[in-house]
Amino acid sequence: MSDHASHAGHEVHEHPDWKQYKWVALILFAITIVEVWAYYIPAFVASSAFVPILLVMSAVKFSIVVAYYMHLKYDNRLFIALFVGPLFIAMFTITALLLLFGKL
């Protein structure tokens, strides 16, 4: 974690603008449609690509909400550390537990 004492006193607040908000919403909407659509294609559901592709789509949605709506992309790096560190440990824990219970 870095120390931000050097540029103290002034918070960088460069929020994404209105246009970006709309684009993000549109992408979220589009991905959700694709996800649900994929759910109704039995051949695709049965294929081994289904789960990874769905996880990737979900991760994209997750990331753009965090990056733009939670403006982590534009905010202090400290917040990235506070969020990504625990998120990493949480995902490690999920993965390890699923492996231990023979689910992966």
């Binding site: 931000h4 918070e11 400290l78 917040f79 506070l82 969020f83 625990p86 949480a90």
Partner: peptide
């Protein structure tokens, strides 16, 4: 404040980090 950031915002991000583990479980 040391970082120039607001205490409340740091706390809420720490809280969100903790919530990650809650939902992970």
């Amino acid at each position: 404040t040391t970082t120039g950031l607001d205490n409340r915002k740091i706390a809420v991000w720490a809280f969100i980090g903790s919530e990650c583990m809650l939902f992970a479980s």
